[in-house]
């Protein structure tokens, strides 16, 4: 395991927004996370890549406890992630999450999807939430669809709404769990564009993705995982040009193939 110095150095200033310390997790006999250590500083964009089954999605989901961990620690702004109850809910409200399958609430309109969190969880007045929600929908380019139902939108549009829904909570950080993997090729860019803009705006982001172009252009740091462990991490240019480990080289070669 090569825990490189770059990561430490990059996140050195201030308390990291997200920190994982010696995180281990098993699914039955499968060791899906092996001694994961990761720090994500304020405003940092960390892209997690790796072959499927490498544990990168699981890693992402442990950060807001959609997956539990067997041992180790998850810290949000230096405080341990609560395990249950109101404290956990409150912590989750501060971290946005975007899923591979969008997961919009099927029975509520687009604008309702965006305002539900602020109104019900943060007790924002309905009018104000709506105003802000519309502004967010404009930002992600689906304002005209506000009154429609999720199923009436394309996958790309749904995913942009899902991002707006998370943004409406004014999150400290955003987690993206393969946000473009379920999309048709022509819709991938419309979602990535929104993410690029978010990153430029200084959002702290953890992005699990197969989009190497995005990783290269936008990320501050690339984390390469395989078999449940972080094999290598570093600045995107260094990582993509001169991967230090054999595993990473193989992986990069395999995706260059197509």
């Amino acid at each position: 395991m090569t825990q490189t110095q770059t990561g430490e150095a990059l996140a050195a200033e201030g308390t990291p927004v997200i920190e994982l310390r010696h995180v281990d997790k098993h699914f039955g006999s499968l060791h899906v996370l092996k001694d994961i250590n990761l720090k994500v500083g304020k405003g940092e964009v960390v892209v997690v890549i790796g072959p499927s089954g490498s544990g990168k999605s699981t890693l992402c989901r442990t950060i807001n406890r959609l997956e539990t961990i067997d041992s180790g620690e998850v810290l949000i702004e230096g405080k341990p992630l609560p395990q249950e109850g109101k404290e956990l809910a409150a912590m989750r409200a501060e971290i946005g999450m975007v899923f591979q399958s969008f997961n919009l609430f099927a029975h509520r309109s687009i604008i309702d999807n965006v305002t539900m969190g602020p109104v019900e969880v943060l007790s924002v007045p309905r009018d104000k939430a709506r105003e802000e929600g519309m502004e967010l929908l404009r930002r992600v380019g689906v304002a005209e669809q506000a009154e429609k139902m999720p199923a009436q939108l394309s996958g790309g549009q749904q995913q942009r709404v899902a991002i707006a829904r998370s943004l409406a909570m004014h999150p400290k950080a955003m987690l993206f769990d393969e946000p473009t993997s379920a999309l048709d090729p022509e819709m991938i860019n419309e979602v990535l564009d929104v993410m690029v803009e978010l990153a430029r705006g200084g959002m702290t982001m953890v992005v699990v993705t197969h989009e190497m172009g995005f990783a290269r252009r936008v990320s501050d740091r690339v984390v390469f995982m395989a078999d449940g462990a972080i094999i290598e991490e570093g600045k995107p240019d260094e990582f993509f040009e001169h991967p230090t480990t054999e595993r990473a080289r193989e992986f990069l070669d395999s995706i260059k193939g197509h």
């Binding site: 406890r65 959609l66 539990t68 609560p82 395990q83 249950e84 109850g85 956990l88």
Partner: peptide, 8 residues
């Protein structure tokens, strides 16, 4: 129900 914490 999510996987319970110690209290739950």
């Amino acid at each position: 129900y999510e996987s319970p914490g110690p209290h739950t």
